[in-house]
Design a protein around this nucleic acid. Structure first.
Lengths: 160, 160
DNA sequence: CTTGATAATGATAATCATTATCAATAAGGA
DNA sequence: TCCTTATTGATAATGATTATCATTATCAAG
């Protein structure tokens, strides 16, 4: 099982070919960028990061690639309410397990949490099954998020 | 306890005064529009609806009012992934109970469901408490959504 | 190793939801 | 009724995302 150890072709190359997509430098650079970080990058963030090594990769390509990756389910696209979408590698193969998010509505900090994740997923699966049947809905994804004030911001607003 | 029966002042008038906000025609019209529907209206939807009776209420005012209402927690603001925010009265006082959403990623139909809602909320509350403590996060809101294909759309894509 | 069909790219312009500006208006306490 | 000031609405600005289209690069086939 190939790993991203810098030697063989990266693990995601096969996925591209399998979907009838070509494997290009921009795509590789974008996936690598997402693979290297644990932050929640926007399209522009990714563009800037990629731009350092490949100055001629355009923002348009970043958007297009992100769409393809999302459609391949290699990445998740999130909206945390700050007016731009943010992206996260779905299975880093090496890193992060499944998690949900805590969103600060003031400074927009995102905290990944895994606490209770199993109970959440368990309930979600049960709900999913029941809803699928009841509404004839083919559910393919779910979203759970909590909103509030992070430690810093709640202190600030308390002091006012 | 005043009801929206067309006689006394509507139940939300007091809320405005309590928050130091003025009670105006546009605001009344916008709340009424949201109160009358069970759909998930966008700012423009609301503008168009309001516009029929009050042609000189502008879109800007709609946006501003929605912001105020959301901040007063009289309405919820949702993002269902179609590039515009959608709004829902929080407590219709007469109608809808608390519910979550099923979102069709193809035609963007929204289904409100209340099944399992109690179990969901129970788990959310527990999670909320634990996360609040662990991350010193003042949680004020949550979001649960399921994404997938509605009956029509899954038939369409199957046939394809 | 070439070749050729065509998927992918990138510069540019267009879209479209939302926000900022600012003078005119209206709510509501005095 | 008056006066302070929140609210409004027309307009322009913003900013993320998408469409266009000529150019380029991938990769299967020869």
């Amino acid at each position: 099982m190939p790993r991203g150890d810098g030697k063989g072709p990266p693990w995601w190359k096969g996925k591209f070919r399998g979907c009838g997509h070509r494997f290009t430098i921009p795509r590789q650079a974008i996936i690598e960028t997402l693979d290297k970080t644990s932050a929640h990058l926007s399209a522009e963030d990714i563009y800037l990061a990629v731009h350092k090594r490949y100055p001629n990769i355009g923002l348009t390509t970043v958007y297009r690639t992100l769409e393809v990756l999302a459609q391949m389910r290699l990445i998740f696209k999130f909206d945390f309410g700050d007016g731009r979408s943010r992206y996260e590698l779905a299975h880093s193969d090496s890193k992060k397990e499944h998690h949900h998010h805590l969103v600060c509505t003031n400074c927009n900090r995102i905290i990944d949490y895994t606490d209770f994740i199993n109970k959440e997923i368990e309930l979600l699966n049960k709900t999913e099954k029941a809803l699928s049947k009841k509404f004839n809905f083919k559910i393919s994804n779910h979203l759970i998020q909590f909103y509030g004030l992070c430690e810093k911001c709640s202190k600030l607003t308390a002091r006012q």
